[in-house]
Design a protein around this nucleic acid. Structure first.
Length: 170
DNA sequence: AAAGCGGTCAACCGCCAATCA
DNA sequence: TTGATTGGCGGTTGACCGCTT
């Protein structure tokens, strides 16, 4: 016998949450706290899996969640933390108040990862892809990055890229 | 005007570690 | 000690939207 499913699949709603469901979940948690996620849907009158409720609450409905675009400082923090922690999104989120692991993961995969690739930085190892970095490590254009160790070079490239962004050259 | 395409992001899935009985 | 249960995590999916052709 395998592990029992987290919820009875019959009669359990899936897909996007409705405003009514959001309201029910929010009101229930504000009154009782989450308690046991498995029993919460029944108690709150929701036809949802407990897992789905927990995800909806922690990723979207929690009152301390900061919505909207990531600032450049946040983006820089994510890059630096990712270079140390790797794909430990929850650990990264714990260091960015108001941001969820899901949000950071999405932002990484859709924005930062591609940006690093464009910069010639491997998004997994954070090491410069030297085969692609002829322009970036050119001593004339970026003398610090050209001379430094790998770690310092990454930081230098981030600073270099920041200046380019500020100058609207990218 | 509409079909195709790529980007975005909310939500789901499956796995694992911690906890409980 | 062990098997069941629960919560949490990272990876992936798919619906939606805007842009291009």
């Amino acid at each position: 016998m395998g592990r029992s499913p987290c919820c009875d699949k019959n009669g359990v709603m899936k897909g996007p949450w409705t405003p009514e469901e959001d309201l029910k979940l929010t009101q229930y948690i504000q009154m009782h706290g989450p308690g046991n996620w498995r029993t919460l849907p029944k108690n709150a009158g929701l036809q949802r899996c407990g897992k789905s409720c927990r995800l909806r609450w922690s990723n979207y409905l929690r009152p301390d969640i900061k919505r909207g675009r990531f600032s450049f400082e946040e983006e820089e923090s994510i890059i630096q933390l990712h270079s140390v922690l790797g794909n430990k999104w929850s650990a990264i989120a714990a260091r960015l108040p108001g941001r969820t692991d899901n949000e950071i993961k999405n932002y990484w995969n859709t924005h930062i990862r591609k940006r690093l690739l464009r910069m010639g930085i491997d998004p997994v190892t954070h090491a410069p892809r030297l085969d692609l970095l002829d322009l970036q490590i050119c001593p004339v254009i970026c003398p610090i990055a050209a001379a430094a160790t790998v770690a310092v070079r990454i930081l230098a490239l981030i600073q270099f890229y920041r200046r380019l962004c500020l100058a609207r050259l990218i």
